[in-house]
Design a protein around this nucleic acid. Sequence first.
DNA 1: TATGTATGCAAGTACTTACTTACATTCATG
DNA 2: CATGAATGTAAGTAAGTACTTGCATACATA
Lengths: 202, 202
Amino acid sequence: MASTEDKILDATIKLLDEVGWEGATTRKIAAEAGVNEVTLFRKFKTKKQLLNAAKSRSAHKFLVELEELLKIDDNRDIETYLKTIWVNASQMVDNRTNLIRIAMEEVRDIPLEDRVLPQISKMILDTLTSYFRKKISEGSIRDIDPEVAALSIFSIVFQVNIMWKIYGQVPPVEEKRCMENFLEIFLKGITIPPTAVESQNK
Amino acid sequence: MASTEDKILDATIKLLDEVGWEGATTRKIAAEAGVNEVTLFRKFKTKKQLLNAAKSRSAHKFLVELEELLKIDDNRDIETYLKTIWVNASQMVDNRTNLIRIAMEEVRDIPLEDRVLPQISKMILDTLTSYFRKKISEGSIRDIDPEVAALSIFSIVFQVNIMWKIYGQVPPVEEKRCMENFLEIFLKGITIPPTAVESQNK
DNA sequence: TATGTATGCAAGTACTTACTTACATTCATG
DNA sequence: CATGAATGTAAGTAAGTACTTGCATACATA
């Protein structure tokens, strides 16, 4: 059976997701957790500390899970690698839209280093960047800017998975088509043109 | 001299930007506008109606201005065209970060069709999509997916200009380098390889 | 000059919020 | 059984919120 703390933290995350910071009153959280309101204050002192605890707990879980999902075999072909990253990120966001939505709302009053979104981006960007760096040094792709390549992948994945889901925009393109047709362009952009050597040698 | 309505609407936008919906109390808005609190209610009935009026006024301005900035000569070379779009969008966001931040926060309680962010995205995506469509039919670029090409440009511009600015992430790459190195990859990905015909004809 | 419209001012209402205090109950463990 | 920690119950506090009411004032225009 879940401990009182856990019940409270779970209820907090749920309400934070559904109704946001201001909507998540201590009364509602207590009701959702099946716990008396005073218990919140006994355990967490203030509302602020409670919400911080809830957020950092689930942000931590998220980052650990994400790190695991980003461990992908470096040596499969580039298209497979990038597709795997894409699909894993999608799935991650689908399961945890609540945390992402909460993270998107912490525009104010949260110290930069505590914000969740930058931490998530950084982890993905670093992974992709060092992947591209490796592939460049292996000579499997052109000498492109690895940070920028990483960023362009990250951006479109972010846009498709997060912005559309959270802002309820009607996606102009369905996801699979998007992934495939983007990679079609991108891969052509980073591969060493097969005829380049040939025509130089001529 | 600005009319009372204008002073109130300007103050509303300013506070909405600085402290968000819940932070923007009617008292603060009145003080910022240099107007008595009752005047707000006499002019706009409720807080909700006031904030809606303020938002839709500046969203409208934004969209008109954006539409103007997106009218770029179709016939200049592709790199110049895309760079111009990029720079114009950047500049637009710099001048109007406030509206964007407000738009990003309207995740809740705002009917889909009234949300500002989707309207902005749509305008940019449509412009880019029909541009690529045209270039494809002219034969200036490969037969790529025009929607997806548009989306990949939009995504990275959005990420660099909006996410970094609003979420205060430390940009891993400075903007100019980002634009140039991204386009270097992207353009190589969409152009017809010069040696392709040659090697086919062989 | 007279009248109406826009605005200011002061006070108040009804409600909600985070948070507190004092006391009662449960229940595992020594 | 007895003790103490964790939790519930009831009531209340201080502060802030959107919004209202009644009256005074300025000022443009008929």
